[in-house]
Nucleic acid binder design. Structure first.
Lengths: 143, 143
DNA sequence: ATGACTGCAAAGCCTTTGCACGCAA
DNA sequence: TTGCGTGCAAAGGCTTTGCAGTCAT
């Protein structure tokens, strides 16, 4: 029922291997970094934290991981897109963003998920993913 | 209880005047174009549809209208941000986007809104707005 | 040995900024 | 007349692409 801490990494590595990707390069480093993050990171932040990995490699890796459904891209209103790991069938969170200071806080809500699931089924689209973003002012900035 | 068709334009024009903005220029044209649209338009699309108006003016106008709460910016996954009018306290919709062809379809759902409203109140943030995006494949692209 | 993968640098695209002219008030 | 508003062009920032060298298999 419960998984080890590194399970997403294992799952992702396996999925990459199955898809015919090689391991050991920059892509693996991107993957491992994302595994340790609870929330979204921008491509440039990832690039900054992986000095040995080129920027292009980071973007290419994120693209591939997203195609495989291992990573989700999220738009949080800033100029740069955020990327975070996507737990298969597991809990997933959404984001509240402070329009003043840019702070991002994740949250989960079961009722919200249910509503979205229902809408998704009703739609004529075959809905694969979704995201919800709340925007406002954080306690510190309101204060 | 009901409003005339042009009410949002009137409301927006009034809000602009109250905020000390002048009228008659490119900003008014941007405003009038958005008034006729049911869904989001990108800045570049707006620029293309308003030949006499410069691109910078379009971006500046959208920024101002957004600050006044008359327009909402929405990220639909494409490179360019979308903008659509925001009815004050009125119905508002969200979007389903086809990842294959880019088609955007609006939808409304009361239960979803209720869930979001509840989450917004629980949060430590002062939530001002929100948006929900569903992504998948449209009927036509699913084949 | 082979070709997937990578880094670097250049190019692309959306968006913002600087500046001088024009028009609403 | 005043200074807000505008258009044009240049600059800025994120992302993608081209290309040749490198490394996993």
């Amino acid at each position: 029922m419960s998984r080890e801490a590194g399970s997403w990494t294992d799952l992702a590595t396996e999925a990459l291997a199955r898809a015919g990707f090689r391991s050991g390069g920059g892509r693996s480093q991107v993957l491992e970094l994302l595994a340790t993050q609870g929330c979204a990171l921008t491509a440039l932040e990832i690039d900054r934290r992986l000095p040995g990995v080129g920027r292009a490699t980071v973007y290419r890796a994120l693209d591939q991981l997203e195609s495989l459904g291992l990573v989700q891209r999220v738009d949080l209103g800033s100029d740069a897109a955020g990327y975070e790991r996507l737990d298969p069938e597991g809990h997933h969170h959404h984001h509240i963003v402070c329009e003043r200071c840019g702070k991002v806080v994740p949250f989960e809500d079961a009722a919200l998920e249910r509503a979205i699931k229902r809408v998704s089924h009703q739609a004529s689209f075959d809905v694969a993913e979704h995201d919800v973003t709340l925007r406002g002012t954080c306690a510190r900035c309101s204060g």
